[in-house]
């Protein structure tokens, strides 16, 4: 028997995960489009908008709702390992390898849920644009699939990876502690950047990417070099650490 990875055990784990969570997953499929539609309608009818504002709303919804949803899924995934001892004991007694457990987490949190979420996002976006164009005949918007940058997704994937690792690392409330640590980490980055660069303001535009408004000229300079790459490095690092933590997890 291969103790590192077996497709049979992986398939059994997927089946067990599906049987255990199918109601919750189906409920998500129903709620995601309803909430997205609601958000698009609320934001677009809040005040009369122009097409450029629509782009802003688009990204705002993606970052807030989709971001929160992806992080929420990451918090829940390894819940079994950090809430109650009996849950941890149950999870650890199932004959699966750490790599199989991790691969399920990866497929579910990083691929399946984002794919569903992004698909729904674009479908609802398409419908919302149709409604917007009907309401504002003079200011038509073209539907674009590329409105949401890939870096937004990578940013969320990195945050989700940190949360998954945190859920395994901390004994209780690991997901929430990880979110607080991420916020502190980003605030520190902004503070350090503010200290060393002449500026009027520093804005966080993406995960680890800053925009500096230069003093005097008012020029906007975006900094997405070292910090951003460093933050993205957290993604593979957290998965490696999660694998090690899963092997060492005690009940």
């Amino acid at each position: 028997m291969n103790d590192v990875f077996s497709f049979k055990r992986f398939a059994l784990s997927v089946k067990a995960y599906w049987i255990e969570n199918k109601k919750r997953i189906i409920l998500k499929f129903i709620l995601i489009p309803i909430i997205l539609m609601f958000l698009f309608l609320i934001l677009n009818s809040w005040k009369p908008i122009k097409s450029y504002q629509y782009d802003f709303h688009d990204e705002f919804i993606f970052i807030t709702f989709c971001g929160a949803f992806l992080c929420g899924n990451a918090i829940r995934f390894f819940n079994n390992y950090s809430t109650k001892r009996e849950m941890t004991m149950f999870s650890l007694s199932i004959p699966t390898a750490p790599l199989e457990r991790l691969l399920i987490a990866f497929c579910y949190v990083m691929i399946f849920i984002p794919l569903i979420l992004i698909s729904f996002f674009f479908i609802i976006d398409f419908i919302a644009i149709g409604i917007f164009n009907n309401l504002h005949q003079s200011d038509q918007i073209m539907f674009k699939l590329s409105d949401i940058p890939a870096s937004d997704y990578i940013g969320f994937a990195t945050i989700a990876s940190v949360i998954l690792f945190g859920s395994l690392f901390f004994k209780k409330y690991g997901g929430f502690i990880s979110i607080i640590l991420i916020i502190i980490f980003l605030l520190l980055q902004i503070s350090i950047t503010s200290l060393f660069l002449p500026r009027e303001a520093v804005n966080l535009i993406e995960f680890g990417s800053f925009e500096i408004i230069e003093r005097g000229t008012g020029n906007r300079i975006s900094i997405n070099g070292f910090m951003q790459y460093f933050n993205y490095l957290l993604l593979p690092l957290c998965w490696i650490l999660s694998y090690m933590k899963l092997r060492e997890k005690e009940a």
């Binding site: 028997m1 103790d3 077996s6 055990r9 007694s93 004959p95 699966t96 390898a97």
Partner: peptide, 10 residues
């Protein structure tokens, strides 16, 4: 906690 071990333990 090898799977080959755990599948023989309950």
């Amino acid at each position: 906690r090898l799977p080959s071990m755990l599948c023989e333990m309950m």
